Amino acid sequence: MRVVLSVVGKFHTFELAREMANRDVLSAIFTGYPRFKLRQEHEVQAQLRTFPWLYAPYMALRGRNLLKGRLLKQWDLANCLSFDAYTAWRMPPCDVYVGLSSAALWSGRQAKQRGARFVCDRGSAHIRVQDRILREEHALWDMPYLGVDPRFIEREEAEYAEADCITVPSGFAVQSFIDQGVAPHKLRRLPYGVNLGSFARNGQAAADRFDVLFTGGMSLQKGIPYLLQAYKLLQHPRKSLSFAGSFDPTFIEAMKHRGLWSDDIVLLGHLPWEALSRRMSQSHALVLPSVQEGFGMVLAQALACGCPVIGSQHTGAPDLIEDGKAGYIVPIRSPQAIADRLQGLADDPALQQRLSQEALATVQHIGGWRNYGDQALAIYRELL
């Protein structure tokens, strides 16, 4: 079997590439990342094909907050179109082509014309469901929302129709496609793994405190207002809420304006994996209350560190844990449910310790990225 992968950025596709390379089936991986930023990807150096000419400046300008609004949308579209065209032009012979959605339409068609199977890899809910939920969320909080570019919606739906198979990481994502009329036989649930070498217990939660952690970008999509509301409801003399990841000062001001921000909140910024693993190990709970997310990899990472998790039904949490074992599953937009679970852990240290031990056992059962590679390869063999 010969497998070709494509991804404009990196995401989980490079984990998949390493697993395919370790099985000696990877023919090529196309990416928009410049080669010098991929020097650590030793297993796939021979198979790397880079097209960084739009993606690298896109990331640099966006990181400096110089790309906004319609200009951001236009650049994003041009980036995906040019990358897709390059992948289609340079694609080597293969049996299976796996392209991350939005930038795999032309390359997927090219692969099929050459007799290969086309797998559309979608890391989130159906794009129309994603857009609807986010539109509703921004309306609820009276915050501006540009919406998903209709050209992206048209392009992704063409990919869904063209693909021989669509892989998604969670049951929530699968159901979103079915609700939009996609045939169930075309869908495959493929949950992401966790790097057990990078994430492992590295410390203990303090006995005289109650520390809550959120990891990821600060946005309405991540359900941050509901976490802030829940934190205000939590009763503990030495409580803390820390945010690890990017944060937007404008968003924080909006939360302050609504009376949701607390002065004791800690902004950690981006943490290297060693520091993040340590912070997860020292936290009493990690909360991921997203209203829309294909699969929250931070949930599995926290479990690997022995940190109980509280995840919404739209984060992939139901694909990782049973409610009440290693953590809890809560409805979206439910600060009271989050607060009740946090209060139960804060009031009962023995319960927190039990869930911590269950978290370690759960993630060992889930396995690392090797299990993900095994499942992916089984899907590709089935297609052939």
Rank of each mutant, 00 (worst) to 15 (best):
R2L: 02
V3M: 07
F11N: 14
A21F: 04
R23E: 15
R23I: 05
V25P: 01
L26V: 08
F30W: 06
Y33H: 00
F36A: 01
Q40P: 03
E41K: 05
E41Q: 15
L48C: 07
R49D: 01
R49M: 13
K68M: 02
K73L: 15
D76N: 08
V96M: 06
A103H: 07
W106I: 06
W106F: 00
G108K: 01
K112G: 05
R114M: 08
C120H: 03
D121V: 03
S124G: 07
A125E: 12
D131P: 01
R135G: 13
L140W: 05
L146C: 10
E154Q: 14
Q175N: 10
G181S: 03
P191E: 05
G193R: 00
V194C: 15
G197K: 03
V212S: 13
V212P: 10
M218Q: 13
L220N: 09
Q235S: 10
P237F: 03
S246E: 07
F251G: 14
G259N: 06
L267T: 14
W273I: 11
S277P: 09
A285H: 01
V287K: 07
P289E: 05
Q292H: 02
F295H: 02
F295C: 01
G296H: 02
A304L: 02
C305S: 15
G306Y: 10
G306Q: 13
I310D: 12
G311S: 06
S312M: 01
L320C: 14
D348N: 15
P349H: 03
A350E: 08
Q352W: 02
R354Y: 00
S356Y: 12
Q357K: 05
E358G: 11
A361Q: 14
I366D: 00
W369C: 03
R381D: 10
